Deep mutational scan, measured.
Amino acid sequence: MTGIVKWFNADKGFGFITPDDGSKDVFVHFSAIQNDGYKSLDEGQKVSFTIESGAKGPAAGNVTSL
């Protein structure tokens, strides 16, 4: 699925993605970002991701920028 990064705190390594389908915002951890180098996201960035079952509920996985 796709969405827009609502916010991401690079110091803490997590944030939230707002899915394009209008569903509830999804937690994203830096370890789910699939790019080389520094793993961070920018507010407003368009991303593709999967929904994984995290310890505290749904979380984004396999996050790639579009």
Rank of each mutant, 00 (worst) to 15 (best):
S48V: 10
V5L: 03
A10M: 09
I17H: 00
F14Y: 14
V5C: 06
K46Q: 11
T64Q: 14
E52F: 09
A55W: 12
N62Y: 09
K39F: 09
F30I: 09
Y38H: 13
F49R: 00
V5Y: 01
F27T: 02
P58A: 10
G3M: 01
E52M: 13
T64F: 11
K6R: 10
K39D: 05
P58N: 10
L66Q: 10
D25R: 04
F49S: 00
K12C: 12
G37M: 09
V28T: 03
M1L: 15
N9V: 05
V47Y: 02
Q45P: 01
S48A: 14
N35C: 12
V5M: 03
A59N: 10
F49I: 02
K39E: 05
A32C: 06
A59C: 13
N35L: 11
G61A: 14
F27I: 03
A10G: 11
L41I: 07
I51V: 12
F27Y: 10
N62A: 09
G37H: 10
K6L: 06
G22M: 07
V28E: 00
K46G: 07
A32H: 07
I33T: 03
T18C: 11
E43S: 15
Y38M: 10
T50E: 10
N62T: 10
F27P: 03
F16P: 00
A10N: 11
F27Q: 02
A10D: 08
V5I: 08
H29A: 04
I51R: 07
S40Y: 15
A60N: 01
S53P: 15
E43T: 14
K39C: 08
K12Q: 09
V63M: 02
F49E: 00
H29E: 04
A55R: 12
T64Y: 12
V26Y: 05
G57K: 07
V63S: 01
T18W: 07
G44R: 05
G54H: 15
T50L: 10
S23E: 07
G57C: 07
S23T: 13
T2W: 06
G3D: 00
E43R: 15
D42I: 15
G54Q: 14
A60W: 02
G54T: 14
K12S: 06
V47T: 02
L66V: 11
G15C: 01
K24H: 12
G13F: 03
V63T: 02
K39M: 09
I51P: 04
T18D: 03
I51E: 03
K12F: 11
F49V: 01
S53D: 15
V26K: 03
H29R: 04
I33V: 09
Q45E: 13
K39P: 10
G57L: 07
F30R: 12
S53G: 13
G61I: 15
N35S: 14
D11C: 15
D42T: 13
W7T: 03
G57F: 08
E43D: 10
A10V: 13
F16A: 03
A32P: 02
Q45F: 05
T2H: 08
I17W: 00
D25I: 06
L41P: 02
L41K: 01
K24V: 12
A10Y: 11
K6I: 05
V28I: 07
V28W: 02
D42L: 15
K56W: 14
D36V: 12
K12M: 12
F14M: 06
V26L: 10
G3L: 01
A59Q: 15
D42V: 15
A60T: 03
K6V: 06
V28N: 00
F14H: 06
K24P: 14
D20Y: 07
G54D: 12
E52A: 08
A60L: 02
A59K: 13
S40F: 12
A10I: 12
I51K: 08
A59S: 13
G13M: 03
A32F: 04
S48C: 12
N62M: 14
D42G: 13
S65K: 15
M1F: 14
D25E: 11
F49W: 02
G15S: 00
K39R: 12
D42P: 08
K6E: 02
F16C: 04
T2S: 08
D36K: 14
N9C: 10
P19M: 06
K56F: 14
E52H: 10
K24S: 13
N62I: 08
D21A: 05
K24F: 09
A10T: 14
A55H: 12
V26C: 06
T18R: 14
I51A: 04
S40T: 13
N35R: 08
S23V: 05
F16V: 06
S48I: 12
G44A: 05
G13Q: 03
S48R: 11
A60R: 01
H29Q: 04
D36Q: 15
T50V: 13
N9K: 10
N62E: 08
F16E: 03
I33C: 04
